[in-house]
Nucleic acid binder design. Sequence first.
DNA 1: TCGCAATCGTTCGTCACACTAACGTTAGTC
DNA 2: GACTAACGTTAGTGTGACGAACGATTGCGA
Lengths: 153, 153
Amino acid sequence: MTESTPELVAAARLRNLPTRLLSLAAMHSDRRVNEALGRVDARKWHYAVLATLDEFGAASQAELSDRTRIYRSDLVAVINELTDRGFVERAADPSDRRRNVVTLTRQGRRQLLKLDKLLAELGDEVLAPLTEAEREQFTRLLTVLLRYHDQGM
Amino acid sequence: MTESTPELVAAARLRNLPTRLLSLAAMHSDRRVNEALGRVDARKWHYAVLATLDEFGAASQAELSDRTRIYRSDLVAVINELTDRGFVERAADPSDRRRNVVTLTRQGRRQLLKLDKLLAELGDEVLAPLTEAEREQFTRLLTVLLRYHDQGM
DNA sequence: TCGCAATCGTTCGTCACACTAACGTTAGTC
DNA sequence: GACTAACGTTAGTGTGACGAACGATTGCGA
């Protein structure tokens, strides 16, 4: 009814390889998130930008890129999409005409709240099999890893 | 000396989003793994196939695909690469001429041991900031997640 | 004050990866 | 002996991370 594949098991070496587990888990998680966001015509970059603007106020694209880890080149399209949807406004910075100032609109803030809820649900869904304590432990460990490698964060 | 970027911090909402942490951590990990394997002219699929053959013996490509999660279509190229390097042999299965039988060679087993060591080092490197107990906890949590979502594994 | 280097936004292109579709070949089934 | 299903293979799609180059602008040092 659900799956016709025999569901063969992987080799022990693979099952115990932490880098592989991490990769597979992230794939699943990403897929879920992308699907769910796609259903409301959003992408995770949208959320990243909206949340950043909400927390730090209007910013240049360079700053947004640094904070969200979105490449400057890719950020262009993201801002385009957000302006098309009326969630942000892009204007030339009068004090430095190389820059743009990206501003969160009222609709943008509303969308942010909507995505907040959606992503919270998704997080619960992805971490469903973990207890509350385990979830905290999990995010703590991930944070430690990121802080260590990536000097950012 | 190392980084010229100001290293801006991300928004709190993003810092606490488990799906995002997972994604970022996996990206870092994958990148390290791919780089390291690339330096010895390998890919992670190579390891997956070699390990599977070592553990379960000669197999058809369909079975390898099921066990390694590599798509049948992509597996073709992987087996090509491995035969080019002399690590596996591909022959028609006499008992079912639709299938191929993929066999691990002596060189293949040697390569597997080499990759074993390399990946163990990489695992240590990636999980460096975690204590031994935390590492076990981490892989355990990942396994729980995978087992829950993905009915395979 | 002039020239050089750096920064910003933008466009274009690349590379790898997950994933689908279609197809010829071969095996089992009724 | 026709139909269906599995196998390996080819080709193609979509996306995401990433790099190169460029015009416009700014700041800095000679």
